[in-house]
Design a binder for these strands. Structure first.
Lengths: 193, 193
DNA sequence: CGCGACGTTGATTTGCCTCAACGATTGTGG
DNA sequence: CCACAATCGTTGAGGCAAATCAACGTCGCG
């Protein structure tokens, strides 16, 4: 029997019993474009696996500007990690918005922790993911320190071609930390080369 | 018996046997100011626990400028995480320099992975650390997107008072992503308030 | 003492932002 | 299916924060 579980854990092999056990902790969620998975101030207890569609995590600063932290497409996991993983649990500081109709699977962080304790292969999977993310974060910080807006944009469309198709330019701008006007000028410049 | 191991794992309790087993995988390292723990191009196999002193991780961009990714003081762990945790293992892209005489304990990533497999409490410890770091990274990216150089500086000296004492201003500047001149002007501005 | 490393200051430049206006594209109700 | 509105993207003018370039104090150390 094939299951969403095997997709979530990158084709890891499970027994029928394990599959049913894990399945019981999952909840399927359908979202439409513009729906919010999470809004600022809400309590955060869950993590979400994206089976299809596209979401973005952003927060709004004191001047009202949006800043995009992360996009998530098929195969990715998302949540408000600041609230969920921070040393002291806080309410959500960000918004997670559906930007392309999506199908998600939700599991509570508590249940996920239990799975990690009960099943070493899940624990290893989680560690591997976190380590990869760790490296990716270092790379992103390093890029932010080093590259010009234009270079960061070129980098983005090269690194995330799947995401580029789903998102608006102003989403990309807010991810890169620039204004839509600047991005527009950058795109013109690139087109003229 | 008290051991460096209990310090490394935040007062976790171990049996005498466990302590000796783990001790066998550790190597003590002493570094003096200006020594390098790691240089660009070297192979990376180990992670390092800082028992004392201060280190900084930086890399040099194509124009020769230094960018500081991370400082590390007592109680922290460090390595070139891009090389060590990245999906494909690469040689080091950064330098880790001792900026205050230091005592470290080295353990290979392979051995650490073995410990995680053999000892669930180590696995949980590792996951907890990675998750906290994950949240911290999100916060740092968010700050970089939001705050002015002056705000980031004030934030830095508030968040890391222990580090501030050990590092030069130009280290802080390269951590914040600004020039030493700009930092100097910011400090003057703050002093005059 | 004298040298090198570090920090400061000033003048100028630059990359990106802000504000304002105007096309282009998308979506929706009649 | 069209008409119109809303959303999104582009362009221009002007401004500002931080970079660059250059010079000069200051501190610590051989």
């Amino acid at each position: 029997m094939t299951s969403i579980i095997t997709e979530m854990f990158r084709n890891m092999v499970f027994t029928e019993h394990e599959l049913q056990y894990m399945q019981g902790k999952l909840k399927k969620i359908r979202l439409q474009k513009k729906d919010f998975l999470l809004q600022e101030g809400e309590e955060v207890h869950d993590i979400y696996y994206i089976h299809d569609g596209c979401l973005r995590t952003y927060f709004i600063d004191t001047t009202g500007k949006e800043h995009t932290l992360q996009f998530a497409v098929k195969g990715w996991w998302t949540s408000d990690y600041i609230a969920l993983f921070g040393r002291e649990r806080t309410k959500s500081v960000s918004y997670i918005e559906c930007i392309k109709d999506a199908v998600l699977y939700q599991i509570s962080k508590d249940d996920f922790d239990i799975l990690c304790d009960e099943m070493p292969k899940i624990s290893r999977f989680h560690i591997k993911n976190l380590e990869s993310a760790f490296a990716a974060f270092h790379r992103r910080i390093l890029e932010n320190l080093t590259l010009s807006a234009k270079e960061r944009y070129l980098n983005f469309i090269k690194s995330y071609p799947t995401i580029e198709q789903n998102v608006k330019n102003y989403h990309i701008a807010s991810f890169l930390g620039i204004t839509t006007e600047s991005l527009s000028r950058i795109r013109r410049e690139i087109a003229s080369e």
